[in-house]
């Protein structure tokens, strides 16, 4: 790991002031992606602004039909929250599938989204549920948030504060894991808002993306057979040792079908 300067602000304001001064600095949330990248010397921020003491980012609550997850809420908290389990069980289940137990105890939603790993799980939920990402200065719709490989709509120094998820009628997430890393080789989040259906895919492209043809078919009829025969184009999908674009395309269909089945259960 390269050397850096460490800061521990106790409020968002303090964190933002620091970020404004340290242009090569980075916010540190749970560290489960950033510290890893730094250990391998793939990332070398001049400064780390640790958000661990910023308590206003740690709220998790359900207000009416909306689940509000503070940027610093850990995956394990979302997974174990009875309120989330009741409001959007698929979101709690997804949080419980991220990484492993130890990672879930540290990793946060804000960190995950800001990093936008192409194989992370949360982006599928954010996009699949049409969540809104609040930063210290604006609200960003999910559809406008993910821009590419490790690339988001966030501006330098912009801090995610909260993510709000509208509760669907039913939803489910199906993840086919990369056997080695346990990240999503392909993950599909399906949400039915009563006529309006969203299907979001992670792991398969540069960043999470929606699957409009499946959404249309499911909006007409929310049933596994509606998607079972939809052939996904493999163009532009990720290609690595574990999965070719063709295999990923195939898995998108399989996982979408299984997600619909699970949502109907």
């Amino acid at each position: 790991m390269y050397a850096f300067e460490y800061h521990r602000p106790s409020s968002s304001k303090e964190a933002l002031d620091l970020a404004a001064k340290k242009s090569e600095g980075k916010f540190l949330a749970g560290g489960q992606s950033l510290v890893q990248a730094m250990k391998l010397r793939l990332s070398s921020p001049s400064d780390l602004i640790d958000l661990g003491s910023v308590s206003e980012l740690k709220n998790l609550k359900v207000e009416g039909n909306t689940v509000l997850v503070g940027a610093m809420v850990r995956h394990a908290e979302v997974a174990a929250s009875p309120a989330v389990q009741k409001a959007i069980p698929a979101l709690a289940a997804l949080a419980g599938m991220i990484g492993d137990r130890q990672v879930r105890h540290m990793g946060t939603i804000g960190g995950s989204l800001a990093n936008s790993d192409p194989a992370a799980d949360y982006p599928a939920a954010v996009l699949g549920l049409g969540a809104t990402i609040s930063t210290h200065k604006r609200k960003i719709e999910a559809d406008k948030f993910f821009k590419g490989l490790y690339e988001t709509a966030l501006e330098p120094g912009e801090l995610i504060t909260q993510v709000s998820f509208p509760a669907p009628k039913r939803a489910a997430y199906m993840k086919f894991k990369n056997p080695a890393s346990r990240f999503a080789l392909v993950g599909v989040f399906v949400a039915d808002f009563g006529g309006n259906v969203r299907v979001a895919v992670t792991g398969a492209g540069a960043c999470a993306f929606r699957q409009p043809d499946m959404e249309k078919a499911l909006a007409a009829k929310f049933a596994p057979e509606s998607v079972a025969n939809i052939k996904v184009k493999s163009d532009g999908l990720n290609n690595d040792l574990h999965a070719s674009p063709e295999y990923r395309a195939h898995l998108i269909t399989v996982m979408a079908k299984r997600a619909v089945e699970a949502a109907l259960k």
């Binding site: 056997p179 080695a180 890393s181 690595d240 040792l241 574990h242």
Partner: peptide, 28 residues
């Protein structure tokens, strides 16, 4: 089932970490 060391044609080790080389886990 899971383990295979893979070099690409130029001799770079593709399975250079546990992120790509799959050691069996308890669930495997």
């Amino acid at each position: 089932l899971t383990e295979g060391c893979h070099y690409d044609e130029s001799g770079q080790l593709v399975t250079g970490s546990l992120m790509d080389y799959c050691l069996p886990r308890a669930g495997d």
